[in-house]
Simulated scan of single mutants.
Amino acid sequence: MREPRIGIFGGTFNPVHIGHVRAAIEVAEALGLAGVEFAPAARPPHKSGDPLLDFALRLDLCRAAVSGIPGFSVNPLENERPGPSYTCDLLADLARTRPGEQFCFIMGMGDLLCLAAWKNGLGLGRLAHLAVHARQGQELEAFGRFLDHNAKAMGAAPTADPAVWSLPQGRLMQYVPVARLDVSASDIRRRWQEGKRIDGLMRPSVLDKLLTHADALPAGWGRPPAA
């Protein structure tokens, strides 16, 4: 019997919001994952120079976001590795330090379409199962087109289900439609910079944590207008 898969949800989470949490829940339910670990990037190479909260705070926000959700947790491994935060290095470290466990890396459609530009991005399927979440009823064709163009490099092959492709070593790459929630971290940061309320865009526990550390937000997001 194969070990149950554990979802690894990577991202900057600047900040983590309800869209992240809901997508992770729906992917876990759709694929029967044993759990999901949020793995915030400590030093995302593709966002160097962008406004970014301190890693320790983003880690605490993720812990607040998954609190009380069965099977959900936060993995701080990215902060323990030197240099830029590359997904391929994270997955390789997980495979090395937790032998025998099966991992499923969770990404959004936007990440998939940029995967060829990531360090060893097209090789991620040799390290873990892959799950691509997208808004319900949309982008299955884009998923298929991407794989048609990159199947050889990824070692991927289609199955009878257009939402499922086979990967090396018996792994799978799956498209998972999720509920449409038009929430983004960039919009939350913009609203905060404009002095607008961000209630309802994240779990109350996350908002409470942000407000508790309000003095750290200007350094990461820029200063809001004076009251």
Rank of each mutant, 00 (worst) to 15 (best):
A227Q: 10
S85N: 08
A179Y: 05
A128T: 04
A216G: 00
E29L: 13
A151I: 02
I8D: 02
Q138E: 15
P82W: 10
M1K: 05
Q138T: 15
M202S: 02
A153V: 02
A23E: 06
S184H: 13
R180W: 10
H20N: 08
G19V: 09
N79V: 02
L147F: 14
P70S: 13
P45G: 10
E80L: 11
G35Y: 09
L167P: 05
G155P: 01
A65M: 09
L115V: 08
L217I: 13
P218L: 11
G71R: 09
L207T: 05
T12S: 15
A216N: 01
A227S: 09
R22H: 07
R191S: 01
L127G: 01
R58I: 09
R191I: 02
G108R: 07
P40I: 15
L113D: 04
L57T: 07
P70F: 07
D54A: 15
S166H: 10
I25N: 00
G137E: 11
M202R: 02
S67A: 15
G121L: 05
L52P: 02
M154V: 07
D93A: 15
I8R: 00
D187A: 15
R191T: 04
V66A: 11
A56I: 00
L90M: 09
P15K: 12
A39W: 06
I6R: 12
F13L: 08
Y175H: 15
A214S: 14
F38D: 09
E194L: 11
D182Q: 12
K209I: 02
D93F: 05
F105S: 03
F72T: 08
R126W: 09
P76N: 11
I6F: 09
N150T: 08
A156N: 01
E80D: 10
I8G: 01
G35H: 06
L207D: 00
L130V: 14
R126K: 15
G110W: 05
H17A: 02
G108I: 09
L115M: 14
G137N: 09
